[in-house]
Structure formats: C-alpha cells, structure tokens
C-alpha cells in the first residue's frame, strides 16, 4: 500500500475537506460564507485577517477559510495554501475596473505549487446587480479556458439572494470527493 493510498484512506475516514476562499476585497467572500451558513449578512464588516467556518454538508465536514483580499493582505495568502482541497475564487461581476487585477491575481495563484491539485470553483458573484457581467463574460475576462492545471468550473451567483451558492459548493464537493475519497 503506497503512501498516497494510506492518505486517501485516512481522509476517507474523516471525510473532511479544506476549502480556501480567495478573491479581491469586496468580492463578497465573507457574505457567501455567512449566507451559506444561514447567518445574517447585513452586519458583515470588511475582513481584517480571516474567518474560519466549519460546517457539515452532505456528510462532509468542511473547513472553510475566508481570507481578506485587501492589497496589503494578498501577500499573506500563501500562508493558507497548505493542504487545500478546493479553491473558491470569488469575483465581483460588476467591478469592471478591477477585472484585470482579478485575472492577474488568479493566474498567479494557479502557478502556486502548494495549490496544485486543488479543484477551482469560480463564483461570478453579485449577479443580482443590473451592471453585472455574465458568467460567460467573466470566464472570458479571466481567461479560464486557458487553465490546464486544475479542474475548474464557473458559476454565476448572488450572495445576497443566496442564488446558486449551493450548486457551486455541490459541484466542488463532488469533484473533490471523486478525487480524494474514491476507493481503489
């Protein structure tokens, strides 16, 4: 039995996953996390540092890390990469001015060795705003079709209405589960 098999077996027992939520500041990361957990989203302050939520979903224990996206905090993102199963990249679909910044940060992230193998879910958030770009437009602007290093999927959602959050997380869990919890 190889090391990888042993690791898989161990993980299988715990059925635990570590998800890392990243994206530019103001994208809606904290709001998504709280909404998903059924909490009030009207009192959320800008994140200084990070939030961690542990929740049960579909029989899995999810450890979700929501890390602040301010410019001055982005250099710390790497401190959170270790043993990440899934990366959730959150985009403010109405923030056209920073899309280029957003694309650059994401592609730099995908080069990180410690994130290799993590499944990528892109949330094109704030779809409820009239000026929001569609998920197809975001897909193009972030050049997602060029990604060869990760499994990925983009989903349009709104953290304020809760629309499609579940669909996104379900896709992510299925993809990760197929990867690390499959028995041989």
């Amino acid at each position: 039995m190889g090391l990888l098999t042993i690791l898989k077996k161990m993980k299988q027992k715990e059925r635990e996953m570590r998800l890392l939520m990243l994206g530019l500041d103001n994208a809606g990361k904290t709001t998504i996390l709280k909404k998903f957990n059924g909490e009030d989203v009207s009192t959320i302050s800008p994140t200084l540092g990070f939030n961690i939520k542990t929740l049960e979903h579909k029989g899995f224990k999810l450890n979700i890390w929501d890390v602040g996206g301010q410019k001055s905090l982005r250099s710390y993102w790497r401190n959170y990469f270790e043993s990440t199963d899934g990366l959730v990249w959150v985009v403010d679909s109405a923030d056209r001015l920073r899309l280029e910044d957003c694309r650059q940060e994401l592609s730099a992230l995908l080069l990180e060795e410690r994130l290799a193998g993590a499944t990528l879910l892109v949330f094109a958030n704030k779809q409820d705003l009239p000026g929001a770009l569609s998920k197809e437009q975001i897909q193009e602007a972030l050049a997602l079709d060029e990604i060869r290093s990760h499994h990925w999927c983009i989903i349009g959602c709104s953290a304020v209405t809760g629309n499609n959050l579940l669909a996104g997380v379900d896709w992510l869990l299925d993809d990760i589960a197929a990867r690390i919890f499959t028995t041989d």
């Binding site: 694309r103 995908l110 290799a116 193998g117 990867r179």
Partner: peptide
C-alpha cells in the same frame, strides 16, 4: 511533488499551466 499532483490535474493537461500574458478586452464599461 508535482509528479504526484499530475495525476489529479485536469484530463486535458498535457500543456503546462495557463500563460499569464493574455490581455482580454472587457466590454465597454
């Protein structure tokens, strides 16, 4: 390490990670 991670990367992954140089024109804002 990257050997081990190859296994779990996307099926179409014979090319290295995405190039970072593409400029994308975003719809007139």
């Amino acid at each position: 390490r990257s050997k081990a991670t190859d296994k779990v990367s996307a099926p179409e992954s014979d090319t290295p990670a995405a190039s970072v140089s593409t400029k994308v024109a975003v719809a007139p804002a």
